[in-house]
Amino acid sequence: MEAARTEQSAAGKSSVKRGSSDRWMALLFLLPSFLLIVIFVYGFIGWTGYVSLTNWNSLVPDMSFAGLKNYVFLFSDFRFQADLRNTLFFTILFIGLVILLGLSLAILLDQKIKGESIFRNIFFFPMALSFVVTGVVWQWILNPSTGVNLFLQTFGIQPKWYTDTNILAGFQWGQIEFGLPAALIAVGLAAVWQMTGFSLAMYIAGLRAIPDETREAARMDGATEFQIYRHVILPQLHPITVSVIIIMAHISLKIFDLIYSMTGPGANFVTDVPGVYMFETTFRGNYYANGAAIAIVMLLSVAVFMVPYLINSRKGAS
């Protein structure tokens, strides 16, 4: 009896001990990632924010306090105003087309199509490519003097694509002409070609998650295929559309490599975006404080979407 009790308590004790050493191990496992994120994400964002408030606009660091001077400069700057316009219109165009094309293709593939996996692979593969490769290839395809224009000229149209300096439906606002820069349509085409795979994959996963019984029940009630999609299936895909919009928005707001390799800033900055401006002004022009200010504006524009989405998404998960 006595022996059994001590044995039991010894076992209990050692398991407590082991439990606490396990907890220390857990901490040790998490610590490297935790520290790296704290320093290299949050610490560095703070440092960039600080740089954006200084006078460091030459090769030699000058950390004297400048207040909001760099931000005031940016928002009155022709190039940055053009960037904000371009980002806004590019984002709308890009997200709209990615959703429209992705959803349409997903619904078509949902019709028990023969060779469905072949089609899927064809639509997905550009996702595995670099934006730089996409930029280089589409620069050639949409070259105004060759490329698709060789076909289009038989119909008498010769779009100037990314060399077009027109602003569609433009009106003067601040220093810039506000409207959709025609050249962005060319960039948008390349971006849509590359990223539609993502929305398609999301929608296919969403459609598969809808049980067949749901469709059967609607069919029994006499609904046509069209009505089933319109009233039963599409509403259920709504959360997926939200995810696609958020993910595509953050890609669009920080886009850099595609535009840098395909067109650069463009004449009159018709294809310039904050990512390209930040890169050029910081690393080619040595305007570090200005570059930091652009980076902070980019971060805030992404955070406005991303923070609520992350919080919501995590809540839903746990």
Partner: peptide, 26 residues
């Protein structure tokens, strides 16, 4: 552990930031 979910969410934010915002200090 207590707070691990918050910590995880804070870590996740790191994958959405524009890397321009950490590039100068980096």
């Amino acid at each position: 552990f207590k707070g691990s979910e918050v910590l995880f969410t804070l870590m996740l934010f790191g994958m959405f930031i524009p890397y321009q915002s950490i590039l100068i200090p980096l």
